[in-house]
């Protein structure tokens, strides 16, 4: 009998420890969810609407930008209104590929819309650039040329890593030098010219400097594994102490916003080059609002 007693006490204690560990697990997961939202906040990029929605919007508006950032297309030319013909598009795509090859991996996008629907060109360009993440993660060697043909507005948005090679005055020079072509409605030539000039400016500097990189969040990393681990251990112990009676319950509480968030550490450090294994957009480059705008 005493043996039995001791056994049940041990099992009860085990159950209590299990529950505590589970509480710890839940706490740590909650914590990592917090860190997650913080990271999201740090990387403020407006959400892009779903592809179908965007396609529908583009078809309706004939190439107008209404606030929903369309998906980046392979080749980095986004032209929902088909303002460029097939030949111009191919030539531009080749020019962009040449820029990527000669700058050691820099990515430049070209977006052409008819109108920005009253959204300031700086806002529109930054939203696209931050959504598409042109340039490589860490090097931030990206740029985006945005042209609104009916608004007669243009902006060259320069990624953080290229701000040294292309200060705003050089970006302004580039805008000024392509503005005659824009005035003449030679959208393809103007965009190609801009890509060539960006390449020349970047090659003028030895190599894009690898700047800072994303903020270091390494000390928040153990939160998830630790949380998961103790949660599982907790479940196991609780389960065994209850004689194997399964009582799995999904935690329905917490932030609604974190429901579909991938676990921390699940983001690949750098996305693979496009055209290979599916297209995932830019490489993770960051933008801080550098560049120049103009009207033509």
């Amino acid at each position: 009998m005493p043996e039995d007693n001791a056994k049940s006490r041990a099992s009860r204690r085990q159950g209590a420890i299990g529950k505590l560990l589970m509480a710890l697990g839940a706490g740590a997961i909650l914590q990592s969810c917090h860190t997650q939202t913080q990271n999201d906040a740090a990387n403020i990029a407006p959400s892009s609407a779903s592809g179908a929605q965007v396609a529908a919007a583009a078809a309706q508006n004939g190439g107008a930008f209404t606030g929903a950032v369309p998906e980046l297309e392979p080749g980095f030319v986004v032209d929902p209104g088909k303002i460029l013909d097939e030949a111009a598009r191919t030539a531009l795509t080749n020019e962009i590929a040449a820029l990527e090859a000669t700058t050691g991996g820099g990515q430049m996008g070209v977006a052409i819309f008819t109108t920005l629907s009253g959204i300031p060109v700086e806002d529109a360009a930054l939203r696209m650039a931050r959504t598409w993440k042109l340039g490589r993660s860490g090097a931030d060697d990206g740029a985006l040329l945005l042209v609104a043909t009916q608004d007669r507005e243009v902006r060259l948005e320069v990624g953080l890593g290229w701000e040294g090679a292309i200060p705003d005055s050089v970006a302004g020079d580039i805008i000024r030098s392509i503005s005659p072509e824009l005035k003449a409605g030679k959208w393809g030539e103007a965009a190609q010219d801009a890509v060539r000039r960006v390449g020349a400016a970047v090659r003028g500097e030895p190599a894009p400097r690898r700047k800072g990189g994303p903020p270091d969040d390494s000390d928040s990393f153990p939160a998830m594994p630790l949380g998961m681990f103790s949660l599982f251990v907790g479940f196991a112990m609780w389960d065994s102490s209850r004689g194997g009676k399964r009582k799995l319950r999904r935690d329905g509480g917490g932030d609604a916003g974190t429901a579909g968030a991938p676990p921390i550490g699940a983001f690949p450090p750098s996305r693979p080059h496009h055209f290979r294994g599916g297209f995932h957009g830019g490489g993770g480059g960051r933008f801080g609002g550098g560049g120049a705008s103009g009207r033509f």
Binding site: E122, L126, P167, D168, S169, A171, G172, D173, R176, G288, G289, G290, G291, A292, S293
Partner: peptide
Amino acid sequence: LRLQDELSGTENRIAV
């Protein structure tokens, strides 16, 4: 012109 570029670029960065 170039100073103006730098100035509006910086103002845009401040906004961002």
